[in-house]
Write a protein that binds this DNA or RNA. Structure first.
Length: 274
DNA sequence: ATGTCGTGGACGCCACGA
């Protein structure tokens, strides 16, 4: 096989909102959807609690990064899982006050799968515009952008995919009602600028072009009947380097997976690379 | 179809995060 040859790769990202509560659904979904790689967020468990064997049984290796019941990220792959990294270089932790030491959080894990460095990312929520978690979120995104920019500067042909729950709605049409989000996180100008900075650095968000809005979402709050009312948010994305972007052949949001009892509040988001 | 869901810790509920 020539050195530069690559195989097709189907890559999914899904905030599963507890892997232990969702394991049957996740395994069923992987088998049904036949993806090569699944990046998961909010596994909500320690490494010692992660159900690795359920994935191994269906032919997937898993790398997990979980410290406690909060956050937690993982990558399942049937096309290799090499050179695992937990947290990206420069990734900040959260400090309760500026003088306090930063506490590490399990929000990023990466591995090389099928020739692509895949990052599974759970961007900090931000909570409120006045909360200390809000500047933390902006700093976290800026550091990630800085990491990504360096990867591209070092190798213009780098195959890098940053997928996950970005907790940013980049366009007004990515929420069901901008008036409702007035003064809230996820739609503020600094968050949108932090997200757009990846495209300015040469990266491309792949899913939107194949799944245009308005009214196309990846997350629906459990409360207030948001899902049946079609009141969601588009906050899960796949942001990839130029060499990978040119291979993108399709994308899909599996909205059906949000239905029924025992669903995560997020839908899986899949991209097919040629 | 459906007025939320998941975690841990001390219980049969509460606090917390989303």
């Amino acid at each position: 096989m020539p050195q530069n040859a690559h195989s097709p790769l189907s890559l999914a990202t899904w905030n599963v909102n507890s892997i232990r509560a969702r394991i049957d659904r996740v395994v069923d979904w992987i088998e049904r959807s036949d993806v090569d790689v699944l990046a998961m967020q909010e596994t909500k468990c320690k490494d010692s609690q992660f159900p690795f064997e359920r994935f191994e049984k269906i032919g997937y290796e898993v790398a997990h990064f979980g410290l406690n019941q909060w956050n937690g990220v993982a990558i399942a792959s049937r096309v290799g899982l090499d050179d695992v990294e937990r947290a990206f270089p420069g990734m900040p932790g959260f400090a309760k006050d500026p003088e306090a030491e930063q506490a590490q959080e399990a929000r990023a894990i990466s591995a090389v799968c099928g020739g692509v460095r895949v990052w599974s990312l759970y961007v900090p929520n931000g909570r409120e515009l006045t909360d200390r978690h809000y500047p933390y979120k902006l700093e976290w995104l800026d550091r990630l952008r800085s990491y990504a920019q360096k990867q591209l500067a070092d190798d213009a042909g780098v195959r890098l995919a940053m997928v996950g729950d970005w907790n940013v709605a980049p366009l007004d049409e990515d929420v069901w009602d901008m008036e409702f989000f007035e003064g809230k996180t996820h739609v503020s100008a600094p968050e949108r600028e932090a997200f757009d900075a990846f495209e300015a650095a040469g990266y491309k968000e792949i899913t939107r072009g194949f799944t245009p809005g308005p009214g196309v979402y990846t997350y629906w709050d459990y409360t207030q009947l948001r899902f049946p009312k079609k009141q969601g948010m588009r906050i899960d994305f796949q942001v990839v380097s130029p060499a990978l972007a040119e291979r993108a052949a399709g994308a899909e949001i599996d909205r059906d997976e949000r239905k029924g009892n025992g669903a995560s509040d997020h839908a899986p988001v899949i991209v097919r690379f040629e």
